[in-house]
């Protein structure tokens, strides 16, 4: 089963990709996704300060992720 991960700004630059799909086993929470991601692309500095979203809604680290979900790691925002 797969989940999709989106990275932005500095995180995407470090990982050298904005999008990655990984094979996972459930149950799984966002914190575990964060670990699996870094196993795949290497340590991402500052990711612990990122906001978290699943399917375009903010979530918490302990929230569960399901098959096919899109998990986004959102560095501190700087719009405006």
């Amino acid at each position: 089963m797969m989940i999709n991960i989106l990275l932005f700004a500095d995180l995407a630059q470090q990982a050298e990709t904005e999008r990655i799909s990984i094979e996972v086993h459930f149950p799984l929470n966002v914190e575990e996704v964060r670990t699996l991601l870094q196993n795949e692309v290497g340590k991402l500095s500052g990711i612990e300060n990122a906001l978290l979203a699943v399917n375009e809604e903010y979530v918490e680290l302990t929230d569960q992720v399901n098959d096919g979900d899109t998990v986004a790691f959102i560095p501190p925002v700087s719009g405006g």
Partner: peptide, 24 residues
């Protein structure tokens, strides 16, 4: 609120380098 919750990022290109702005 835009500066708090909207997922938009700004990258500054300065005369002496570049930097993603976050956590302003």
């Amino acid at each position: 609120r835009i500066k708090e919750i909207v997922p938009i990022w700004k990258k500054e290109h300065y005369t002496d380098g570049e930097e993603w702005i976050g956590n302003q």
